[in-house]
Design a protein around this nucleic acid. Structure first.
Lengths: 226, 226
DNA sequence: ATAATACCGACAGACAGTCGGTCGGTAACA
DNA sequence: TGTTACCGACCGACTGTCTGTCGGTATTAT
């Protein structure tokens, strides 16, 4: 008893199912059989709509891309919001997209699968950086920031945050994480040529519990003075 | 007609073969059959020595790790070399290990496979950063650098370089690459609180052809002034 | 001779993708 | 109106590849 649906509708059904499964089991841990069973279709149907498993992943990432960049651009364009606040909101747009999808986005950042993870990173770095760099340019005009390389600064800031805070690239204890956050903000100020202490509001991006104290490296790397 | 060899010797044969194949075809594109055929052993032999294909990759990465970090530590410990030169040599140790392995190392950085690539990145960032941070601390004592976060600075510098210059994370034209290098050096100076222009020697890490001119963002992102 | 280690190759199961065939919906035609 | 042809969506058995397993064998050292 076959059921015929519009191609667009079926494609989205497949993507919705894949979305859920990739979050639960990761890309590698999800078989095409898992996906087609969840949708309730046959193998041939799946491959009628997508040419490969990786094609499904790419379509899913593209769906997120459109959503994320759309949200980020809206925020960035709202000149009534102060520059710093806009930066924060754009970055938040990466983490929260469409309200009820928060948990989904968080899981997709987990190293469920390196390939998928890499592709998402690529989308974020190449997509979000120009938007943020645009905002930095406004800050430069307002005298908030001083750098001849707004784009490259934001690229560095985003790429690093991605590697250290969102990846499992660097294993951090709670203390180490707090220290990293402080250093991150300090270094962001330096890179952007912003006044010391002027970007502390970025801290809210990392949730609470990171207090605020004088700059100091609490990594096992305070320079030895012996 | 079976041939018996010492476990250590056989393990290295397998790793040598895997090394070559992973470079040629990537991890995903290399099957265990490829490896065992190249060595001239049976399936069961391969799995006698390694518990999985990923175990082979991990052993190979660990082999490189030991080699790379060893070379880096030697350089870092040579206090007769100026601080800046030592930084350069340590970074070069990542790219050139054991002379004749240069090409191999370069290929292993290619995105032959995301998982392997991710694991190598992790090793580099977590392994090299403390070594470099140690050197930075010496520079701080000598008044060359001024930062309360030597470790985090180097982490950011390494992580970013990895993402942009070694990954295919960001697609760069030759011009864009040159611009990125300039920005990278400029930003490195800022992060480390180094005197402007004092780290231009880092440029040699990127090969020739990057000239030298005044700081300017040649990304399509010079801030619009209208 | 015995025990431990290294080695062998047939096999099983999982998986992504293929391919010949079917079916529902629609347009064209008599 | 009924029939036919066509198209796109769908079906499921099958294929080939791959990783890892396991019962068995050969070699070496004692």
């Amino acid at each position: 008893m076959r059921v015929v649906k519009e191609a667009e509708e079926r494609r989205n059904e497949i993507l919705d199912a894949a979305d859920e499964l990739f979050n639960q089991k990761g890309f590698d841990g999800t078989s095409t059989n898992d996906i087609l069973e969840k949708v309730g279709i046959a193998r041939g149907t799946l491959y009628y709509h997508f040419k490969s498993k990786e094609d499904i992943m790419d379509a899913l990432i593209e769906r997120y891309n459109v959503r994320i960049l759309g949200a980020a651009r809206e925020v960035a364009a709202d000149k009534s919001i102060p520059v710093t606040e806009r930066i924060i909101r754009v970055i938040m747009a990466i983490q929260i997209s469409g309200g009820s999808n928060k948990e989904i986005m968080e899981h997709i950042h987990k190293p469920s699968n390196a390939l998928m993870h890499q592709k998402i990173q690529k989308v974020i770095i190449n997509g979000i950086t120009p938007i943020l760099a645009g905002i930095i340019c406004e800050g430069i005009e307002q005298g908030l920031f001083h750098t001849p390389f707004p784009y490259e600064c934001m690229e560095m800031i985003i790429a690093y945050a991605n590697a250290v805070f969102d990846d499992d690239m660097v294993d951090l204890t709670t203390e180490e994480r707090a220290s990293r956050i402080q250093a991150y903000i300090f270094n962001t100020e330096r890179l952007l040529g912003a006044e010391s202490g002027s970007l502390m509001s970025i801290m809210q991006l990392f949730g609470s519990g990171t207090g605020s104290s004088s700059p100091e490296s609490s990594h096992d790397f305070a320079c030895k003075t012996d």
